[in-house]
Design a protein around this nucleic acid. Structure first.
Lengths: 193, 193
DNA sequence: CGGATCGTTGATCAACTTCAACGGTCGTGG
DNA sequence: CCACGACCGTTGAAGTTGATCAACGATCCG
């Protein structure tokens, strides 16, 4: 479990053995079965979670009860309701396991303590967030400027693994499309080839 | 000019006088008149820019020549084509001044050097990016799950200054709507009151 | 076996875009 | 200093994309 996390961090910054050991002390592990909640809307998000195995979705429910999937998290990704975690406010998002999942959790206080005790983690997260920002900018462009078909094609190209591992109705929700629309797009695209 | 930047940084982290002075040495200033370019698509984005005065837009042009506005930057905001800046690849985005603008620029190399020489800047940018991520997550939710009217209302509520200072066709582009749609929404909302 | 979940297809409908025309304002150059 | 063009906002009419509603077959799992 920890090896996945350590490997992920060492991929971006250097870490001494002492730091590695100290780092480990901040995390607790947690397993989720399919459909179990990591976070429910209205609760405060107490932890930032690293996915060492499995797949989760985070989504919000609108007044009409529709789920809008915000992001998926595969192995090597971090997930939380970021606003809720940072500011310890009520969460807007729900997070549940799509597959059986193993997580490493760090609490809000430990997150700050870790940054102070292991300053290189500031750098690690700065780089991580930097990359996330680029991705989210790109998603924003796609989501407000592209047609349904283009949105699906972009995802298929950039993240084929999500399409392989997830049911299509979840993909639809992630793209902000009706499941029927995704079905029709897939048919159309398969005919093209 | 620098005072605005220093104030912005000190709002998030502590900075000694020595660090302040060193920090200043990394930046150069630049002024833009209305419509002047800070960055053109295809060029490499050499600098990360802090807006000390004015207002810019960043946008990308699709095949059909339509502009999709990605973000605006007011006083106190940072702007760049992040992917281009970080990885020194070709920019996808254009950035131009909407109003007369004053900027402070830091180069890619100096950005890294600054982080190493003034480690607290890692923290500053980590916090900054953290907040940006929350905002962008929210925008993604709004942009893929809400109606045109809801999108406009959300912006009016969260960022009335943008609506005050920008022509409505730019607001439309930012929201991914046709200018006519925004016009009709405004009419409808004004009748409501 | 039986229910739940998922994907597909067809028909209708609504939201938003597109196209076109017009009036107002602003700034610039003659 | 006025006139012209550029830009902006508005309105109407028509067109399109994608959502919604409904029904059905397939698969998976307890």
């Amino acid at each position: 479990m920890f090896e996945v996390l350590i490997a992920h961090i060492k991929n971006k910054v250097d870490l001494s053995e002492v730091q590695e050991a100290r780092l480990a002390s901040f995390f607790i592990s947690k397993k989720l079965r399919k459909k179990q909640y990591l976070l429910k809307e209205g609760d405060v998000c107490r932890h930032l979670s690293f996915v060492s195995k499995g797949l989760l979705k985070s989504y919000f429910s609108d007044e009409k009860g529709n789920e809008h999937i915000n992001m998926f998290a595969l192995e090597g990704w971090w997930i939380s309701d970021f606003n809720s975690f940072i500011n310890q406010e009520q969460a807007v998002l729900n997070i549940t396991a799509v597959e059986e999942t193993e997580l490493l959790l760090i609490s809000r206080d430990d997150y700050d303590t870790m940054m102070l005790q292991i300053p290189v983690m500031d750098r690690y997260f700065r780089i991580l967030y930097q990359n996330s920002l680029v991705t989210k900018d790109y998603r924003l462009i796609v989501s407000s400027g592209y047609t349904a078909e283009e949105k699906y094609s972009q995802l298929a190209q950039n993240n084929p693994e999500l399409i392989r591992r997830l049911p299509h109705n979840l993909i639809a929700s992630y793209l902000g499309l009706a499941p029927e629309t995704v079905s029709r797009i897939r048919k159309k695209l398969s005919l093209k080839k």
